[in-house]
């Protein structure tokens, strides 16, 4: 019988991942592993994990990784990539990490056209710390630190990182995807692959923003979180290629 699917070698078999049931972080991690396998670059890969739920899988990755201080993943990745250009260096960051505390490091790395890949997991909330408001939280979306939901006058507007970075000249590739449907999962995988290929080809800064979920802190069942993405998240964060140089 022909083998049409096998588990990525990027994930250990003897460990259970730390994500909540139904959390898309699991899917995204798996996709990254699969792309590394398919491109046969697992032996070059270095993951730089942000602080947040994105760090919950570090124990079950089989390849090199490090954890950056909260928000500094792009700076740490810059150091690794410049000191060791042969490595395939990507950051894996949540929205609090990438767009709030790390905004300076993120924009600056993008503006330098740093030859790294950013996997930016936007779930509109601070997952790890228990559902506080993020820069990406939607209007009306409740958070533990915004009990009445996001209000423009008080909290400003949801931040669109792809569009913000698209104002810069340097970035090579910016795409927003999601993992809410099988078709979107495949698109996400393709985008990750493209971003890694860009890096191998020395094209510079690439980012895939993945609209993700947080059933736990959104307070919804995993299945309902998919509806929420479709109905609320995607209208605010439309999918597609924003930049492809």
């Amino acid at each position: 019988m022909e083998k049409v699917y096998s588990r990525t070698t990027g994930i250990r078999e003897d460990m259970v991942n730390g994500f909540c049931p139904g959390c898309m972080h699991s899917t995204i991690i798996k996709l990254i592993g699969e792309v590394l396998d398919e491109m046969d670059i697992m032996d070059k890969a270095v993951g730089v994990l942000g602080i947040g739920c994105c760090g919950l899988h570090m124990e079950y990755m089989t390849y090199d990784n490090t954890t950056a201080p909260h928000g500094r993943a792009c700076a740490v990745a810059t150091g690794i990539k410049r000191a060791n250009p042969d490595s395939l260096v990507y950051t894996y960051q949540g929205d609090g990490d990438f767009a709030s505390i790390g905004l300076g490091e993120s924009v600056s790395a993008a503006n330098r056209g740093e030859n790294i890949t950013v996997i930016f997991v936007n779930n509109g909330i601070y997952g790890m710390t228990g559902g506080q408001m993020a820069p990406t939280t939607l209007f009306g979306m409740k958070a533990s630190t915004a009990p009445k939901g996001r209000i423009a006058e008080e909290h400003g507007y949801p931040m669109h990182m792809c569009e913000i970075l698209n104002q810069l000249t340097a970035p090579a590739y910016l795409e927003r995807t999601s993992c809410n449907t099988p078709a979107n999962v495949m698109k996400t995988k393709k985008a990750i692959r493209k971003a890694f290929e860009n890096q191998l080809n020395g094209k510079g800064f690439s980012m895939v923003e993945i609209i993700s979920n947080c059933p736990t802190n959104w307070g919804v069942e995993p299945l309902d979180s998919l509806t929420f993405i479709e109905e609320k998240m995607l209208p605010e964060y439309p999918l597609g290629v924003i930049r492809d140089k």
Binding site: G10, A45, V46, Y63, D64, T66, P69, S87
Partner: peptide, 15 residues
């Protein structure tokens, strides 16, 4: 932390 792949003892910089 430079890429050791899956077969070699993984480097895990663990702050």
């Amino acid at each position: 932390c430079i890429g050791h792949g899956k077969d070699v003892k993984r480097s895990w910089i663990e702050p």
